[in-house]
Design a protein around this nucleic acid. Structure first.
Lengths: 282, 282
DNA sequence: CTACATTATGAAATAAAATTTCATTTTTTC
DNA sequence: GAAAAAATGAAATTTTATTTCATAATGTAG
């Protein structure tokens, strides 16, 4: 996709002269998009046809077309990357870095999510007799938030951030119940056990976790939320945010599935909150 | 910046023929980047020099340069926009829309945040005798999360999502205490009162809210998190996620300010959690 | 409404840029 | 080390963009 990456990748399939072109481009791509083929050829000490052949080798129609691709690569080049905070960063720097990393993680999480699994999960949720959300630590917040959301839908929903209550609830679950277990690492022993217990009691277990973890193996459906965050070394940050976004997705899917009459009901809940607020003056 | 927006803006400063060009471009910009000046002229039923003049009017060097700008606009054009979910969206569609909207909101929130305020807030937090986080509804989750984070730093921190406890805590606050009040709307009466009470008792009140709300007026520092979300009509989604990102920023600023010895301590907390996990097999 | 000025427009000429052709050089293979 | 294959660049060609300039359209003052 990105032509700069492509150049780097194909660097060894290029001829000697073509590689010279590649190097000049990689050294300063932003200059190149304003150069003519002649200027670039001179810069790389090779002839114009070589530049042209170089462009064609990268599956572009010719030099102008190549420049177009290059321009596009530069435009969205590394938009949101996981940039690590540095010891000496200013407030502005670490603020930007954290926001950007969060956005990068959301992008990643979105890609790791399977729309089919989302769809099946929404199916199960709309048909559930009871919905439970379990999480610990940072994921407890996500479970809490999920309860908040689904509570508005007027469906039986509980959340526990306490190991014992989770176990008890899991043991008392039955067919038709949906248990959503949230854990970024997917390796928290007690949560894996809870998932296993719920499963033994015929509840449907949906996991919100990283691919291939012990927790994932215990679940009927796994909603994969990969975010490349090392919570062993750092505080959980992006992981819980990606999980929350997923909760939004499930809640949205739920309301869509339930149809418009149901959404009128939501409006009522909102209206009932209004008197507790100062009026807006705009 | 974005050339497509620029065209739209300057539409009425253009001549009749030039507007024809603009319309053709706006109708299908992706086609245009692969057209020659002759092709575009023909498409718009005007002459080639007119296209050229059009390009110059938009502060580009000429047609090829214009195409470059256009290509860039298309590359990151409308990167993350707030796209509303539609009744008939598929799981894939609404998943993508929600993730994109969330990212768009984070981008917005970042822009609305003032690094100076962040810096001052971190200052105050590092020097606080006690830190309290107050929120209700969706913002309660944010307060909860904040407590989780700051608890790891081994500083006196509390959180309340209950009106009475918040009031009591606010009344008992004193100089040197920092109270962080979180509310997207900034118009929740009881929270505004709590902020006011804390302020009367000489605590420093930091608000995490939207610009210019009643809550904002009661705060010593306002951390502005604007996200253009109508929580009167919809469930809170992006707002709480942006708030969480801000909590991450504050927590990060806090650890940076406290220096490296302090960070060793964080590692200990993490290590103590390890035995509760399944070992990783990679 | 006319005469003048201003601006807008396109045909044709020119200039610039990119591509193709083909001869020469370099590299590879046997 | 000779023949084949591949790479390269000079020059010609083609394509594309720009400039020039004459004409048309539009606006303005008397």
């Amino acid at each position: 996709m990105n032509i700069l990456e492509k150049i780097t990748n194909e660097l060894d399939t290029l001829s000697k002269s073509e590689r010279k072109v590649a190097e000049v481009i990689l050294a300063s791509p932003s200059t190149v998009i304003h150069s003519s083929i002649a200027a670039l050829a001179k810069q790389a000490n090779i002839s114009e046809p070589t530049v042209n052949r170089f462009c064609r080798r990268l599956d572009t129609k010719g030099y102008p077309d190549f420049k177009l691709h290059l321009a596009q690569s530069l435009a969205n080049g590394t938009p949101y990357v996981n940039r690590h905070v540095d010891e000496n960063d200013s407030a502005e720097e670490y603020t930007d870095k954290i926001f950007e990393s969060t956005m990068a993680s959301l992008e990643l999480a979105r890609k790791s999510l399977d729309a089919n699994d989302v769809n099946r999960s929404v199916d199960l949720l709309t048909q559930a007799n009871k919905i439970s959300f379990f999480g610990l630590g940072a994921s407890a917040i996500v479970a809490h938030d999920a309860q908040n959301k689904f509570f508005r839908f007027n469906v039986p929903v509980v959340y526990f951030d306490d190991i014992l209550m989770q176990r008890m609830s899991a043991i008392n679950s039955r067919q038709g119940d949906v248990v959503i277990v949230i854990s970024h690492t997917g390796r928290t022993k007690s949560l894996v056990e809870v998932a296993s217990l719920a499963k033994e009691n015929d509840a449907t277990v949906i996991g919100i976790t990283t691919k291939g973890t012990p927790l994932a193996k215990e679940c009927s459906i796994v909603l994969t939320v990969d975010v490349c965050e090392d919570t062993d070394l750092y505080m959980p940050m992006s992981s819980r945010i990606a999980q929350l976004a997923l909760i939004d997705v499930l809640a949205t899917g739920f309301t869509l599935r339930r149809g418009s009459k149901f959404r009128d009901n939501l409006k009522k809940v909102k209206d009932s909150l209004r008197s507790s607020r100062f009026e807006r003056k705009d």
